[in-house]
């Protein structure tokens, strides 16, 4: 069981190069990297570097998300996209830099606290609770916001039942929303691959997120399934949830996102609207694997 090292926030502050609560210094490189700091940003990734031994998985990466947008995070294999999600959700702690969500630092917070605070995610390789039914999987997510104590659950007090019932109803609605309600009672490992991916989205939505992070949700999908997924992502956005999408399929990303950040070898190489990014020579080079000057 690999629980990453967890220190108290105070310790972490001391260990970080810059105290995480202090605003980042505003210098020339800041303006260059991030443009004007957006006070309404939902999530700010602020000069984040994350090393695994010698590997620099994220190298001074900065970007910020605005509420209500669909934001794309793209880049070739090994670019650091999943690592970025892991840093945002408390799986790994950045070596340096800050991550703020709704203005508050989340570096050093525990995973479940970050989730309860409003960031939910799915995984590149599906990670469901294999022996639970689809409904139970979603209810685990819904449980994140339930208040009843151990005592009232042990003695099954009315309040506990009421929360259990409302969690159940909401979970069924979410299964309906992602289109797999008829599989509610089936053990999740028996679901098809596509259904499992949808179930992961439903489970993440059940935690009632402000920001939903999807790690290659269309991996292994055929074009028809991809089209359905796009439709689903838009519907999620329409419910007021901000979406951060990692995706390999450029057409898919271009079609659905409002803004995009491109990573390569852990560095941000471009940021902008889909049209801007598509025409950026560095991005073309990264995707075609040719040096920038030859593109």
């Amino acid at each position: 069981m690999s629980e990453p090292h967890m220190d108290t926030p105070e310790e972490l502050d001391r260990m970080n190069a810059r105290p995480i609560d202090e605003p980042a210094p505003t210098g020339a490189d800041q303006i260059l990297d991030q443009g004007v700091r957006d006070p309404d940003a939902l999530l700010e990734v602020d000069h984040v570097t994350l090393r695994f031994g010698g590997v620099v998985a994220l190298n001074d990466v900065s970007f910020s998300l605005r509420k209500g947008e669909i934001f794309g995070l793209i880049g070739p294999n090994g670019a650091g996209k999943t690592t970025c999600f892991n840093a945002m959700t408390g799986v790994y702690r950045p070596t340096s830099g800050a991550i703020r969500f709704q203005g508050q630092s989340i570096v050093g917070k525990k995973k479940h606290e970050i989730t309860r605070g409003g960031i939910a995610r799915t995984f590149q390789n599906v990670r469901l609770f294999p022996e639970m039914t689809a409904l139970e999987n979603v209810m685990v997510g819904a449980d994140a916001h339930h208040k009843t104590s151990v005592i009232s659950a042990l003695f099954r007090l009315p309040r506990h039942w009421q929360e259990e019932r409302s969690g159940r109803e909401r979970s069924l609605e979410l299964l309906e929303f992602v289109g797999i309600r008829r599989r509610a009672g089936d053990v999740s490992r028996n679901l098809s691959y596509g259904e499992q991916r949808r179930l992961e989205i439903a489970r993440a939505l059940a935690t009632n997120p402000t920001l939903l992070c999807l790690d290659e949700p269309a991996a292994g999908f055929n074009p028809a399934e991809k089209a359905e997924l796009l439709e689903l992502i838009r519907r999620i956005r329409d419910t007021g949830v901000t979406v951060l999408l990692i995706e390999h399929d450029m057409r898919l990303v271009m079609g659905v996102t409002d803004r995009i950040v491109v990573l390569e070898f852990g560095k941000k190489i471009a940021e902008g609207t889909p049209a801007e990014v598509r025409d950026n020579p560095a991005v073309i080079a990264a995707y075609l694997g040719v040096p920038t000057d030859a593109a």
Binding site: T89, L128, R156
Partner: peptide, 21 residues
């Protein structure tokens, strides 16, 4: 029960359980 569900979630996949709150 809800707490039992949490126990089973951690038993089946501790990392994603934490990430589901």
């Amino acid at each position: 029960s809800r707490l039992g569900r949490g126990i089973r979630a951690v038993a089946q996949n501790p990392d994603s359980a934490a990430l589901m709150g």
